[in-house]
């Protein structure tokens, strides 16, 4: 589904990603871990198409298409979803109108007619139930005055509505209390299927107790330095990241 080859990216001339290789297949959940500043969120931003990031080398293939060639909205319409580390508050845009616009723009891209009001509301209701999302939040302005947990849950709810092929979750667990974490995780687990895939970016192993990954990768200094299965996450939890840094320093040629 997603094939990242030798991806390099920079912000304002500073290299942030320095050769990422990653292959994600349908039905898989990949966790990307790593210390602060290692490039985890940058990877999410580059994949979603944030303008500040300049890709300097490499390629990303998304279901046979060149992802890097697409605008952020086309990436979304092709089925890529970014759950934000910090979902944005947009006063004056109602949650429900926003969702309706988004759903219909995605449909239009695929040559489908806009959803009828009734069908849209039915879908809204069933997804609200599935995601345990508070219906009262629907009529409010997008994320305005939402708590940190409500914002994250709103993002996951949007994911349920848009049914993406690939969801990238950028530190979705940051700022969540244990209850919110459980609800968000349960939501993600309900959306898991053989046709979609997840990239879970997280600093802590905690989230991975709820969303069990198929693969765990460690990102350090703009590169994936170690890959493994879910046991790797436990090892990281136990030992921290320092031992990896040591290993890498030993492996790298003396300059």
């Amino acid at each position: 589904m997603l094939n990242i080859k030798n991806l390099h990216a920079a912000v304002e001339g500073n290299a942030i990603l320095k050769g990422i290789n990653l292959n994600v297949k349908a039905g898989e959940v990949h966790a990307i871990m790593g210390p602060n500043g290692s490039g985890k969120s940058s990877l999410a931003s580059v994949l979603a198409g944030r303008e500040a990031y300049e890709v300097t080398e490499g390629s990303v293939d998304f279901d046979g298409k060149d992802l890097l060639d697409m605008s952020p909205e086309v990436r979304a319409r092709e089925g890529l979803f970014l759950a934000f580390q910090y979902p944005v508050e947009i006063p004056g845009v109602s949650n429900i109108n926003f969702l309706k616009t988004a759903v219909n723009e995605v449909r239009a891209y695929h040559g489908q007619p806009p959803m009828q009001a009734k069908a849209f509301l039915d879908m809204l209701k069933s997804k609200q139930k599935l995601m345990e999302f508070d219906a009262n939040l629907m009529n409010r302005s997008l994320n305005e005055g939402f708590s940190g947990g409500e914002k994250k849950r709103n993002d996951i709810f949007q994911m349920a509505m848009l049914e993406p092929k690939l969801a990238i979750m950028d530190e979705t667990d940051s700022g969540l209390d244990i209850d919110a974490l459980r609800i968000v995780s349960a939501g993600v687990n309900k959306l898991r299927g053989k046709d979609n895939a997840f990239i879970i970016i997280t600093h802590y192993q905690r989230l991975l107790e709820y969303i069990v990954p198929d693969f765990v990768h460690v990102l350090y200094n703009g590169r994936i330095v170690k890959s493994g299965t879910k046991e790797l996450a436990l090892e990281l939890e136990e030992k921290g990241y320092d031992w990896l840094k040591e290993d890498i320093r030993l492996e790298e040629p003396v300059q």
Partner: peptide, 25 residues
């Protein structure tokens, strides 16, 4: 706001429509 614009685009809403929504808001 560029952040708000990106948030809307990341949900599939095109540039013109996203700007329109934000100005109206």
């Amino acid at each position: 706001s560029e952040d708000a614009l990106f948030y809307l685009k990341a949900r599939g809403i095109g540039d013109a429509e996203a700007r329109n929504m934000l100005v109206k808001a």
